[in-house]
Amino acid sequence: MARMKFLCDADRCIECNACVTACKNEHEVPWGINRRRVVTLNDGKPGERSISMACMHCTDAPCAAVCPVNCFYTTADAVVLHSKDLCIGCGYCFYACPFGAPQYPRVGNFGSRGKMDKCTYCAGGPEADLGTAEYEKYGSNRLAEGKLPLCAEMCSTKALLAGDGEIIAQIYKERVVRRGYGSGAWGWKTAYRETVAI
């Protein structure tokens, strides 16, 4: 069975933030919440790398492990979703997540938080597929429409890959093989301890 994954090719990402914008527009994400963001390392220096980050839909999701109300569930596509009806906005998942994926709307003064919001892999939520209730709480359900997350489909440099983990891993593998030595391929320095010409 296909397992849905994201994979960001950092050699291709140009930090255009189109994925962030596409996500916000597709799901009408409220002000102050970013389900996806672009992180840049060594900004402005040689070797600068950008990577688009969102919920990585972990197999053994730490957010689900710490949730006091057990509002998380994993679909057959290996997408980690949650119920906003059960969420109490405690913030535990935010501290547990290594990617900073859970976001909270500010619902009042003094830092009070609302229900957690995060990337749904464009797969909606526990409400009926493609309904108004689902859209209002979780955004659109592109997976049910036979599509993939819009952030990946929108990516102009084809840096962000989404879909069946095995297929996108193969696509990435082909890219790394094609680039060859000196491409700055992930893991090269770790494996060979050599200076990588970019």
Partner: peptide, 12 residues
Amino acid sequence: ETKTRYRESEHV
């Protein structure tokens, strides 16, 4: 609600 929704459509 947890069933497989992904399918290899022409779009995908």
